[in-house]
Amino acid sequence: MTWPVDFLPHRAQTRRVRNVVVLVQDGAEPFGLGSMCEVWAEPYHPEDDNPVFDFKVAAPRPGRVRGASGFDLHVEHGLDVVEQADLVCVCPKRDHLAPSPEVAAAVAAAYERGATVFAHCTAAFVLGEAGLLDGRRCTTHWRHVAELVERFPAAEVDPDVLYVHDGRVVTGAGSAAGLDAALHLLREEFGAATAASAARRMVVPPHRDGGQAQFIAHAVPDCDAETLGPLLSWILENLAADLDVESLARRALMSPRTFARRFRAETGATPHAWVTRQRVLRAEHLLERTDRPVEWIAGEVGFANAATLRHHFARVRGVSPQAYRRQFAC
């Protein structure tokens, strides 16, 4: 359903992404399409004030598109609708090594005129065919990393991340990471509160860092200590506290070395990286929802001073806290 422009939530009228097209091909994977629909095809919910997009699903030829899981799709739109898209999402297909040349050409043309392109899972191969991965960081599902490297040797493939956002090209690792990447894009366009609201509706975590490992190669060994889950919750409630490895290890009743190893095994990140990310996320929320000065926010989230907050915020978000507030303040 497409809402009239004057019915769109206020945030949707001030950002770049308004028209979203999802491209499917024969052999379309249903989870990839479903995850895109969950983020970009929702109607307006007054309680969330969520953005609503002009959302379309398109295929090289309108009509029947073979699915990969025992059912097919009926697609109304052809590739001509890509010409109006601000965001082009490409869904994976079963035979990922044979992407449609027409789809690759449409994606390349969309990128050239300024659209953002998002490839879910093995749809990264479409972006490779479109020439968009040369010299660019990217990822795909860990099972197909070697194929992507072999087929597109000029691409900088990172096998150990959930998603990569490089310029106007986003690639995701597949399956649940498609939701992570889509929520990341929503966050970039509409701010932390909007992305958190969408995640709450989908009953998923509001944010998983793109640099997090795709999977943990070895199971965490059994031991008498509890899982780190309670400690992570405590950290989120005490971000202003001293959260260095030694202090956290003492709270977890472990040696610093054992704690750091176990933390990485359970979260896919180092304690410092994880804590820093949570502090930046909390700072985003405070910048959006309060008019408190940056100095106050820095202390509230556990950074030593405003300069430290600005440093870490710029590394994560690419803008200063003040610029972020100007764009996303409610």
Rank of each mutant, 00 (worst) to 15 (best):
A58T: 10
T122R: 03
V90W: 01
F71T: 02
A110T: 10
A130D: 06
V21F: 08
T140A: 06
G34Q: 09
P153F: 11
H144M: 11
E147D: 15
V20P: 07
V81G: 11
G27R: 06
P51K: 07
E150P: 00
A154R: 15
W142P: 00
D54R: 15
R61V: 14
P99A: 02
D80K: 03
R66N: 02
A146K: 15
V20G: 11
V145C: 11
D134Q: 12
L133A: 07
D86E: 04
F118P: 04
P60Y: 08
A123H: 09
L127T: 15
E112L: 09
R64W: 01
F152W: 13
D26F: 05
A124K: 08
V149R: 14
K93R: 15
E147L: 10
N50H: 09
N19G: 04
R64S: 03
G32F: 03
G135R: 12
L87R: 09
R11F: 02
V52R: 10
Q13H: 07
P46H: 06
L33K: 01
H77Q: 14
P43C: 12
P30C: 03
A85R: 05
A146R: 15
R143I: 00
A68G: 05
A28S: 06
V107L: 04
D86G: 07
E102G: 11
V107C: 04
E150T: 14
V88E: 08
V82D: 06
V20H: 04
E83L: 01
E47H: 07
V39Q: 08
L87W: 09
P99G: 03
G70Q: 02
L87F: 10
L33I: 05
H120K: 00
A108Y: 04
V149H: 00
L132G: 10
R151K: 14
K93G: 13
E38Q: 14
D80I: 05
C91Q: 06
H45Y: 14
R151Q: 15
D26R: 03
V90I: 15
V17F: 02
S69F: 14
G114C: 10
R113S: 07
E42V: 13
L97V: 12
E38C: 07
F125S: 05
V82L: 08
G128H: 04
A110Q: 09
A123G: 09
L132K: 11
G63I: 05
P51V: 07
W40R: 10
G34Y: 01
P62L: 10
V117N: 05
L132S: 11
A108D: 08
A59R: 06
A85K: 02
H96S: 11
A41W: 04
T140Y: 04
S69C: 14
P92G: 14
W40C: 08
R61N: 05
A119V: 06
A106S: 15
D95Q: 13
V88W: 03
A110G: 12
